[in-house]
Amino acid sequence: MLLPCPLTPLLAAKVAGLKATVGLLLILLIKSQLLRVKMSFLGSVLGLVLTLSFLITSGALVVISAGAVAWGLQQRRNAAT
């Protein structure tokens, strides 16, 4: 009896999305801990760096997922012709 391969593209996308979500939540947690340091120049700079890295990471994830959707649609269109 052959079992289906559990590593389908959908499962890989779910795992990648989960890893990205956990990473973003860790960045936000670290940022909130650093922002508790009141009136600290170092805390402000690190908070700014972490905020910018969060925005860059989330933007990159949007671009990657949009590219994956576009690629999938292109593959479907090529397979239909």
Rank of each mutant, 00 (worst) to 15 (best):
A70F: 02
L55S: 05
L34P: 04
V45Y: 10
L7C: 10
L24Y: 05
L28S: 10
L35S: 10
L35F: 03
L73A: 11
A60E: 11
S44H: 01
A70M: 01
L61W: 14
L29P: 02
V69L: 07
T57E: 09
G43H: 01
V62A: 07
L11R: 14
L52K: 02
S53W: 05
P9W: 03
T51D: 06
T8Y: 04
P6D: 09
T57C: 08
A12G: 07
S32Q: 06
L42S: 14
L50I: 00
V15E: 13
K14H: 14
P6K: 01
V22M: 11
I30T: 08
V37G: 09
G59V: 00
F54S: 05
P4E: 10
T8A: 00
V69C: 05
L3T: 09
V63C: 08
K31C: 00
I64P: 01
L50G: 01
L7Y: 15
V22S: 11
Q75S: 03
V62K: 15
V15R: 14
L42G: 08
I27W: 04
L35T: 01
A20T: 03
A13V: 06
A68W: 12
A13L: 08
V69W: 04
L46W: 02
C5N: 15
P4V: 05
L28N: 06
P6E: 06
L26P: 07
C5H: 14
S32P: 03
V45N: 03
V63T: 14
G23D: 09
S32E: 09
L2P: 15
L55Q: 05
L26Q: 08
V22N: 06
L73V: 10
V49T: 03
L42R: 12
I56Q: 12
I64W: 09
L61F: 13
K19H: 11
A70E: 02
I56N: 10
A80W: 03
L52Q: 01
F54Q: 00
I64Y: 07
M39K: 15
S40C: 02
L18Q: 13
R36A: 13
F54I: 00
A12F: 11
A66R: 04
N78M: 02
V62Y: 14
G43T: 04
L28I: 03
I30F: 06
T21P: 08
G47L: 03
Q74S: 11
S32M: 15
A13D: 04
F41A: 10
L46G: 00
N78Q: 10
G17W: 00
R77M: 08
G59C: 03
L3P: 04
V22T: 05
V22A: 15
K38T: 10
V49Y: 04
P9V: 02
V62W: 09
A12P: 01
S40L: 11
L29N: 09
